[in-house]
Write a protein that binds this DNA or RNA. Structure first.
Lengths: 223, 223
DNA sequence: TGATGGAGTGAATTGTAATTCATTTCTTCG
DNA sequence: CGAAGAAATGAATTACAATTCACTCCATCA
């Protein structure tokens, strides 16, 4: 028994793992999935390609962990807002507009994690966090319905799904590399983002607020 | 000059092209993108792989045309609804619920075309039609605002994007191979679909209907 | 110090489909 | 019929990254 792992080595291993994750995250947030190749990550982390595989079993698991780390923080932020003692409508508005504003802080990363085409396996990991966000929103809606401040004629889970889809889609244009024209460090940009966030949040709130819309849809001949 | 294309041959060529498109569409609607391989399409159309390339320059263009054909019909249906003389809110409700119901007629195909992970190039073609749908919805919203039946405090293009994202997301669960458990030919299924369509459409309508929601969002300390 | 075994390396391998193209088969018409 | 050109074929090629692994390098400790 001439070798046993010592604390120093253990620390280095842990550090390597972190460096890989950081490099992976940086590459995605700079160039999207196109840049997120295992070989590039390894190079960016200052090690050989094979080394990455000593820390992660596959590319998919590596990036799932990147996604997980970023997304979990957002879920936590939303959960904290949801847990506050404000009215349901206020919590919903704040949750949505906060999500939008935070996403716009790092648009390229948010775009990649939310919308950019990527490998199937990574895409599946997205679902998990979209579901987690949806669940937070659902709880807010359900509590608002119980308290009587929100309409009761919509299923909370469906409403939450629609709201999440809505604000994500509303974000995609502004987030996407094509939709962003302005430098991010200007006052005008900040104001635009705040306006966008408020408008999207208001749409979300309106969809579940009382009173219900008074619509009498007409019947179409099915075609 | 011993050969010139005759009408008979021209007809066969056109027929081949159609067969390729039909086969491609059938494969996607049966097995999703996983089954949508050029070789499989060729086999399903009863010809050799290389032949497909005499009609389409690439896989992406082939499937973009499949997507285009299916989507354009939906855009047309929505446009017809949008052009009717009903109130804006009624047109919006009918447009959304009609889209949902039509999608649920062929869930596997709709799922593939709307949400299933696929090649980047095909994914880009999706954007075109999502934008076209969004534009139809935007026009309805704008006309409703002009007529005074819809709130004026939301930008029509943003509202349209959010609504489209919302109803697409609301559809994904029910459309996806995992979310569908029931046979499609039962009375119960039809009723469920109708309910889903109505609920989603109602959410969409509520998000832009008058009066605006009365929300006073609280301020969070940025974290 | 040198024997032991884990850690790191990166060129080579693998897997997966799209795409090509030399060859064969079919159509046309003198 | 048979020459000429178009269309079809499908096995071979290409492209591209993920993944592997035989080897080298380093840390540990008797």
């Amino acid at each position: 028994m001439a070798y046993r792992q010592t604390a120093l080595v253990e620390a280095r291993l842990h550090d390597n793992r972190s460096r890989i994750l950081a490099a992976a995250r940086r590459l995605v947030s700079e160039g999207g999935w196109k840049e997120a190749q295992v070989a590039s990550v390894a190079a960016a982390a200052g090690m050989a390609t094979g080394t990455v595989y000593r820390y992660f079993p596959s590319k998919a698991e590596l990036f799932a962990e990147v996604l997980s780390a970023v997304s979990q923080r957002e879920v936590d932020v939303l959960a904290a807002i949801a847990a506050s003692s404000e009215g349901a409508l206020e919590r919903l508005h704040t949750a949505v507009s906060t999500f939008v504003q935070r996403a716009m802080r790092n648009p390229r990363l948010a775009y990649a994690l939310i919308a950019e085409p990527c490998d199937k396996e990574i895409d599946e990991a997205r679902l998990t966090y979209r579901a987690a966000i949806s669940e937070v929103i659902r709880a807010v809606i359900a509590s608002g319905q119980a308290a009587g401040s929100l309409r009761k004629d919509v299923a909370p889970d469906l409403a939450a799904t629609v709201i999440v889809g809505g604000f994500m889609e509303g974000l995609i244009g502004p987030l996407s590399p094509l939709g962003r024209r302005q430098r991010q460090d200007t006052e005008g940009y900040r104001r635009e983002v705040a306006t966008l966030a408020d408008e999207i949040a208001t749409l979300a709130c309106a969809s579940v607020a009382s009173p219900p819309p008074n619509v009498r849809p007409f019947i179409r001949r099915p075609s």
